[in-house]
Simulated scan of single mutants.
Amino acid sequence: MASRSEQFKTPALVRVAFSNGLFELQTDDRGNKSWTCSLLIPKSDSLAVYEKAALEAAAGEWGGEAKVKQLIKDKLIHNPILDGDGPQGKNKQTGESHPGFPGHWFIRVKSGENYPPALVDRKRLPVTKAGGAIYSGCYGFAVLHVFTWENKEKGKGLTFGIDMFQAVKDGDRLGGGGGVDVEKWAEVIPDEGEAPASTKGGAGAGGLFG
Rank of each mutant, 00 (worst) to 15 (best):
N32T: 11
P196A: 05
V14C: 08
L82C: 03
F23G: 00
A48E: 13
T128M: 12
G179E: 06
F18N: 07
I41V: 08
G176L: 09
K90M: 08
D29W: 14
H78A: 15
L82M: 10
G84P: 01
F106V: 01
D45C: 11
R30K: 14
A203M: 13
R173Y: 07
S3Y: 05
E96N: 11
W105C: 00
K152D: 15
A197H: 08
S136N: 09
V127Q: 06
G103V: 04
H78I: 14
H145R: 09
N32S: 13
G31C: 03
P11E: 13
G31V: 04
Q93Y: 11
G177S: 02
E56T: 05
I77C: 00
E192D: 14
G100S: 06
P99D: 12
I81Y: 00
R15P: 03
P80S: 02
I72H: 03
T128H: 08
D172M: 07
D172K: 15
N151E: 10
G132D: 13
R4K: 11
G201A: 12
V14Y: 03
P87K: 09
K169N: 09
D28E: 09
F165K: 00
M164D: 09
K154L: 15
V188K: 15
T10M: 09
V49K: 05
G207N: 14
H145V: 05
I72K: 03
L76P: 06
P117M: 07
G177F: 02
P126H: 02
G207A: 15
S3K: 10
G210N: 12
P87S: 11
G89Y: 05
H104E: 03
D170N: 14
W185G: 10
G201R: 14
V180K: 13
W62H: 08
L174N: 06
P102R: 06
P11M: 10
F18G: 00
D191T: 05
A186Q: 12
V146T: 02
N20I: 13
G112Y: 06
L55W: 04
G202A: 09
L40G: 03
P117S: 08
T199V: 15
C37R: 05
P11N: 14
D28F: 12
